[in-house]
């Protein structure tokens, strides 16, 4: 099955619905959603709060499960995995980039980036090499021993991106990655995401409220009340 953009899909959602329960009230967030994202695609999800953007991110990254429908990522039907297998799936295939960075404050930039590698069979020397490589990619080679509190917001987000790519996942999910940043830092982060997409072939799914951020994507999907209302396709550079 090909995605609308022509490539082999890394994400395929089929008839996905999601309903949250707040006490006794059921709140539908997604309704019968079908979506394909091609390998190497940069997709932006936009829409008002509560439209289901973050829910899609949660579903494709395996930290939440749909009420109905199938979620297939990197050829794996996530519904068939138990919790341990889902954790292993996330470690192998998904890199998370959060709005508020979510770095561990007591760890240095190096140690934060090293965290996902602790789950691999790499020895200390190999881990160090990988971490320094990705810190170089995000332009923070000289900041490896800095703690998060010693970094600017933009730098913290770059450390978070380094952590997301250190285990070489095929998919990056970014939830408002520029939401807490000033304009200059936001541009740097978007440049970096674009570079990771172009040069390293990472598929990116990004939730954003910022139209300028969305402009970096190949495709922008607008959601409203859990339904796709608009899809804007851009030419890949």
């Amino acid at each position: 099955m090909d995605s609308p953009t022509g490539g082999r899909p890394i994400i395929a959602l089929r008839g996905v619905s999601k309903t949250y329960k707040r006490d006794t009230i059921e709140v539908p967030v997604l309704a019968q959603l079908d979506l394909d994202v091609a390998e190497g695609e940069f997709l932006a999800l936009m829409g008002p709060s509560g439209s289901g953007k973050s829910t899609i991110l949660n579903l494709v990254s395996g930290i939440d499960s749909p009420t109905a429908g199938r979620v297939v990522v990197a050829g794996v039907d996530l519904g068939s995995l138990d919790q341990a297998a889902l954790a292993a799936f996330r470690a192998r295939h998904v890199g998370f980039i959060f709005q508020s960075y979510n770095l561990i404050p007591v760890l240095t930039a190096f140690q934060n980036v090293e965290l996902p590698l602790l789950l691999t069979g790499l020895d200390r020397r190999q881990r160090k090499q990988h971490v320094l490589d990705v810190l170089g990619i995000v332009g923070l080679h000289g900041r490896s021993e800095h703690y998060p509190r010693q970094l600017s917001g933009g730098q913290e987000q770059r450390v978070a991106i380094a952590r997301a790519i250190v285990s070489d996942p095929s998919l990056l999910v970014a939830d408002e990655p520029t939401g807490d940043l000033d304009a200059a830092s936001a541009t740097e982060i978007l440049d970096l995401l674009g570079r990771l997409n172009r040069e390293f072939g990472k598929s990116v799914v990004m939730v954003t409220h910022d139209p300028r951020a969305a402009e970096r994507a190949h495709r922008v999907l607008h959601l409203d009340k859990g339904v796709l209302v608009e899809s804007v396709q851009r030419d890949r550079p």
Binding site: S61, I63, Q83, A84, A87, A88, F89, R90, A91, R92, V94, F96, F98, N102, I104, L115, P116, L119, R163, S167
Partner: peptide
């Protein structure tokens, strides 16, 4: 709590 959630999101399983 949030840090533990982040670790789990990064792929740390329940046992770890």
């Amino acid at each position: 709590t949030r840090e533990i959630a982040v670790l789990k999101a990064l792929g740390f399983n329940d046992r770890t």
